[in-house]
Design a binder for these strands. Structure first.
Lengths: 160, 160
DNA sequence: TATTGTTATACTCTATAACTATA
DNA sequence: TATAGTTATAGAGTATAACAATA
């Protein structure tokens, strides 16, 4: 019986889409690179039932005990309302607590529980392995230049 | 022995949130840098009533006349259904047309109209200026290293 | 049977306005 | 009045299943 033709019998038969105009832009390349990182990060965090946002929030709370929600929202560059559901999820899983601040009863002091600190430790180890995997092929000099370039771009942030 | 001298003796100076753990990850820096690029790009494209996705689609259609929707979706790394509304918008604005392919009546050959080519030309010029602004401060060597690093990361894409 | 484009749907991320309880 | 956290809501972006027309 006739087998269906192989997907790519001839490399010339599948003309690659020309994205040379877009390739000229760092933003285009960064979006594509970040998509790869994000995809791999999601898979890395899956076993811990964490997403990028819940992971980021957890680490920042572990590293900054007593943080207010508004400070965390500011640090994460998200609006306050969007943080609520993220913290609800971490609190429900008993990874963090929202302690009332005695001196300002409007605010909460965010703290990680022991379980939260343990999970963050494991997650950081997994994400470190994920980064090592993705950055393989870049030497120390290239990595340092990359970090510096990203910091420079971040510093161009508009506040209008 | 120097004390860490505060920039100005401001008692209201809020302590910065410590994100040193996250700063260790390129992914975190890239998300923050990309947010800045995306914000600025949105403002840059606003006068043309384009978003990142409609802009990307338009450029690829201009540069690849006759492209199929499935090829474009593949090139843009989006699922086919999500492309439909993007193309609907470009078609409604008469920037592109969906021509039937005579040899395969299931498919559409995407082509930019004259208006589409003109708009894409203007948009590319504006985005070029936006990139020049954002990348200011990076010398040619750093930029080249950045491009290469992003390509290397993109190439780590998983296909599972 | 497989593929192209489509519809319907759902989930995540993000942004704004308005509310509450404090200050 | 102003601020911290919340609720409600809406708009993007993304992913999957299922369908009609065509191969």
């Amino acid at each position: 019986m006739k087998r269906p033709a192989p997907a790519h019998p001839d490399p010339e038969a599948i003309p690659k889409v020309d994205d040379s105009t877009l390739r000229g832009f760092v933003g285009y390349r960064m979006k594509r690179a970040f998509n790869v990182i994000q995809d791999d990060l999601s898979k890395t965090l899956k076993p811990f039932e964490l997403r990028m946002l819940t992971y980021t929030a957890l680490i920042l709370i572990v590293d900054n005990p007593g943080l207010r929600q508004s400070q965390l929202a500011d640090a994460m560059d998200v609006e306050r309302p969007n943080l609520v559901v993220i913290l609800d999820e971490l609190e429900r899983r008993e990874l963090i607590v929202r302690d009332r601040v005695p001196t300002d009863r409007r605010a909460y002091a965010l703290k990680a529980t022991l379980a939260g600190r343990r999970l963050s430790e494991q997650a950081v180890a997994a994400v470190t392995a994920h980064e090592d995997r993705l950055m393989r092929g870049l030497d120390d000099g290239a990595l340092e230049t990359l970090r510096h370039a990203l910091k420079t771009i971040e510093a161009r942030k508009r506040r209008d």
